[in-house]
């Protein structure tokens, strides 16, 4: 399997859904809202409502859920780790299982569940944003959204540009890693067999070529940009001006309302 099938963050799937057509600024703010909301929700009903809300958004995006879930695979370990630590080391609640020094308490289990839920949704929301927004739109959106920071002498445009380039190159570098890994395995590199130390040693043969090519790419990109007179954001005009539509306003309002409803569900409900 190709690496780019595993890591979905930073990939963009072109489409024509409502989510694809929204202004990147709206999408970005909505994603931020969802993320912040995630930290305010503390009760089961709140989580359920949040999950339903998120699934509705995913359906509207036309991105297969299966594909979105693939994005979790690389951080599965982190999620499991969070779950286990929370479940084992929480000191609150009643003991429900004890085995030697390992104690599992009911409150700890709840907490473990919610923490991993949060982490999962956090990644899913971010992944969804990049899946339905082309890197160019995303940068332009961020650029515009934070341009007010310019008065504080923060190079907003440059930061946004660096971010896009980083995002843009994730799939490229993954494909490249894939090719190099294949090439070295074809030379018998112990990348897919043997113990962990053997495998790690084999990885030097992957990392060095990867770095060499990343630097070469960076250099070529810089030259290509300079040869088109790129010199940062100053005085730069846009080919595609961003215009906020009524849909954007509606989306923002709906997002806000749903956020409040989620919070209401969270506070009003029985724990």
């Amino acid at each position: 399997m190709a690496l780019s099938d595993v890591v979905t963050l930073g990939q963009y799937i072109p489409g024509n859904s409502l989510l694809h057509r929204l202004d990147p600024r709206t999408k970005f703010l909505a994603a931020i809202t969802l993320t912040i909301l995630l930290f305010f929700v503390t009760k089961l009903t709140g989580y359920i409502f949040f999950l339903v809300l998120f699934l509705a958004v995913v359906t509207a995006s036309g991105i297969p859920l299966r594909f979105l879930l693939r994005g979790l695979r690389p951080i599965l370990f982190l999620i499991l780790f969070t779950f286990i630590v929370q479940a084992l080391f929480s000191q609150e609640g009643n003991v429900i299982l004890q085995w030697g020094f390992l104690v599992i308490r009911d409150a700890g289990l709840w907490k473990a569940f919610f923490m991993s839920f949060r982490l999962t949704l956090l990644v899913l929301v971010t992944t969804l944003l990049t899946l339905v927004t082309s890197p160019i739109d995303l940068t332009d959106g961020l650029d515009r959204l934070f341009s007010f920071l310019h008065v504080l002498r923060i190079p907003v445009h440059e930061i946004a540009m660096m971010m896009t380039i980083a995002l843009r190159f994730i799939p490229t570098l993954l494909d490249e890693t894939d090719t190099i890994v294949k090439a070295q395995i074809s030379r018998g590199a112990p990348l897919d067999r043997g113990n962990i130390f053997r495998r790690l040693r084999g990885f030097v043969a992957v990392l060095i070529p990867l770095f060499v090519s990343a630097f070469r790419r960076a250099d070529e990109l810089a030259q290509a940009m300079e040869s088109r007179c790129y010199r940062g954001g100053e005085g730069r005009t846009r080919m595609r001006a961003m215009v906020l539509h009524w849909t954007d306003l509606w989306t923002a309002l709906v997002a806000l309302a749903l956020g409040l409803v989620t919070l209401a569900f969270n506070w009003l409900a029985v724990p």
């Binding site: 090719t179 090439a183 070295q184 074809s186 043969a205």
Partner: peptide, 28 residues
């Protein structure tokens, strides 16, 4: 089955030519 990939020079990594060529036989 020895497969020479497209642009195989992108897999070179060792400090010397000899070391790089030795990578395969060593793995054997």
């Amino acid at each position: 089955v020895g497969l020479v990939f497209q642009f195989p020079e992108s897999q070179l990594f060792a400090e010397t030519v000899a070391e790089d060529i030795a990578f395969g036989p060593r793995n054997l």
